[in-house]
Design a protein around this nucleic acid. Structure first.
Lengths: 159, 159
DNA sequence: GCTTGACTTAGAGTCAGCTCTAGAAACTAT
DNA sequence: ATAGTTTCTAGAGCTGACTCTAAGTCAAGC
């Protein structure tokens, strides 16, 4: 079973332009060509493509993905290097997810800020008297609700 | 209390170039200037900067962050729009985190793949007999271990 | 045989998000 | 006062990741 660039493009929802770009950047050295020079993807190539898409999803730059594919093509001497590469990016991803959780929590505190403002009809309930500046006690109040067991996601929900 | 662009840059670990770029893109309309035209950041401005950094972290494009800041400057008539904006990006972020969890799981299965190959001294233990193609049963085996209660993160750990 | 459509390459163009340069003006320390 | 540092603007330059164009090749259907 073999597939044209168009069929692979369709299957993976990646444009043929992008697939050729990846090839040019050295990400697809495993892809065969027919007599006319056209790319023929094998079933096994989808294992590589899956790894490539995974690493892209993990925000690994194209060049580094190329380095990993190089390791793959070299053979058993690079097994440890490949394992280490994946470990490095596993850790980076864990770190990123923790960071995104903070970001999400912040978004929810701001939602609560606007929810309460909406209910009051004006943002000024959060200001220090006579100013346009937010009272730091407002954030503290939200933090207290969370410390007392409320879920940030729920606190932000309107009505 | 007011702060120069250099002090803000230092505090937030953002280059002054970037801060000026954000200003140029309309993200910092709230920043005052002194008689000489130099930016003077107020304490309250850090609330805005915190929101900007949060939205950046959530991968919101600079232009859209500008739209949100515009809403903030307009006053109480935009409270609902601001709430909706945050809700939209909260949802996008939740979706992204779910996707990243899948990516992480995939990375861990690949780590297990290389761990077992390393222990065998060769990747060929995963190949279909007489080929260089990965046996689909290998992934199924990993999935079975997970279904039987093993943690993907643990399965990938070496030694 | 001829058109249509998918493919090929090299190379140009685009976009976001910075990042830097140049030249001038303004603070800061001695 | 003067040297050094910081800031200002306008605008150029850079990087990564595509995205497309042009000109040509190839395969399939009428």
């Amino acid at each position: 079973m073999s597939y044209s660039i168009g069929q692979v493009s369709e299957k993976l929802s990646i444009s043929p332009y992008t697939l050729r770009y990846y090839d040019k950047e050295g990400l697809l050295p495993f892809v065969d060509r027919n007599e006319a020079g056209r790319r023929r993807f094998k079933d096994n190539d989808f294992n590589f493509l899956e790894v490539i898409m995974c690493l892209k999803e993990a925000d690994v730059p194209v060049k580094q993905i190329g380095d990993f594919i190089d390791l793959c093509m070299t053979g058993d001497t690079t097994l440890q290097a490949r394992y280490d590469f994946l470990t490095e990016h596993e850790q980076a991803l864990e770190k990123k997810m923790a960071q995104l959780q903070h970001t999400l929590d912040f978004l929810r505190w701001k939602k609560w800020y606007y929810k309460t403002a909406l209910q009051a009809g004006t943002e000024s309930i959060h200001y220090l008297p006579g100013t346009n500046h937010v009272d730091p006690a407002v954030h503290a109040e939200f933090e207290k609700l969370v410390a007392d067991g409320a879920s940030p996601a729920e606190l932000g929900k309107l009505a």
